[in-house]
């Protein structure tokens, strides 16, 4: 792994300043589960690493019935899984996050890191899009909010601009009743990345007939062709048969 300077800013503003100062040379680190693999393989060789781990409140999760769920980008997958509000009001997210990898990785990986990595093999993107999540990004110059769906551009490509930090994910409170499901197709090991992951939300009077679905098709590294795409909200014909039974209604 390349040698680098390491900073632990105490605020988002400070972190943005580091990013601006070191422009192309800097990488942000949160949980480290993705970045450090790439660095160990010498695929990324930043001269500056800026850790977001010591910014107070950067891992907080809050809920307000009007405003919905606000997850700061530094929240770990496991924090989200264990959050009582997530469990009560966002059962799809609970179900999704509790099935991400296993507890050790969920303890490390942050939601911000997950989304910014743009790896379509991972689980949270599809479920968050299905729940109409929006994200807030900030830099020294500007702050913007956009639907998560718009953030994903392609395989390992996001709309994250130079100098920007993803700081928050907001998920509006869904209307009740809410039907939902998340399934992963794991043809090899239960520990594997999914070949296909599907998050499905049915709401209001549309329950019983499909209104909105979101599917992520992922790469089977096994037999047939490999194609990776980002989750997109789509009506996909096979969903009508392949979708799991909507037994979860809250």
């Amino acid at each position: 792994m390349v040698k680098f300077d390491y900073f632990e800013p105490k605020s988002v503003e400070q972190a943005c300043a580091f990013l601006e100062r070191h422009a192309d040379e800097a990488k942000l680190i949160a949980g480290g589960t993705a970045l450090l693999i790439w660095m160990r393989m010498m695929l990324l060789n930043p001269h500056v690493v800026v850790s977001l781990a010591r910014i107070p409140g950067f891992d907080s999760i809050s809920f307000d019935p009007k405003d919905g769920l606000r997850i700061k980008a530094g929240a770990r997958h496991r924090d989200i899984e264990l959050d009582p509000a997530v469990r009560e009001h966002y059962p799809l997210l609970y179900e999704t996050f509790r099935k991400v990898a296993q507890p050790r990785i969920r303890n490390m990986g942050t939601i911000g890191g997950n989304l910014c990595q743009g790896d379509p093999l991972t689980d949270p993107g599809a479920s968050l899009i299905a729940m109409d999540a929006e994200i807030t990004l900030t830099s020294s110059k500007a702050k913007r909010t956009l639907p998560l769906e718009k953030f994903f551009v392609d395989y390992y490509q996001t709309d994250l601009r130079p100098g920007e930090i993803l700081i928050e994910i907001r998920v509006p409170l869904p209307a009740r009743p809410l039907g939902w499901a998340h399934i992963k197709f794991l043809p090899r090991s239960q520990e594997d990345f999914a070949t296909v992951g599907v998050a499905l939300v049915l709401r209001g009077n549309a329950l019983g007939k499909r209104r909105r679905s979101c599917a992520a098709k992922r790469s089977p590294m096994i037999e047939s062709g490999r194609w990776r795409r980002w989750p997109r909200m789509k009506s996909i014909p096979w969903m009508t048969t392949a979708a799991p039974p909507i037994t979860n209604v809250t």
């Binding site: 390491y6 480290g32 496991r78 507890p103 050790r104 303890n107 490390m108």
Partner: peptide
């Protein structure tokens, strides 16, 4: 998971954890 250790009560992979952090 061979490198599993517990940091501040959380199980982590020490092979993907910077000591400086």
């Amino acid at each position: 998971g061979a490198c599993s250790v517990i940091v501040d009560g959380r199980l982590v992979s020490s092979c993907l954890t910077l000591a400086a952090g």
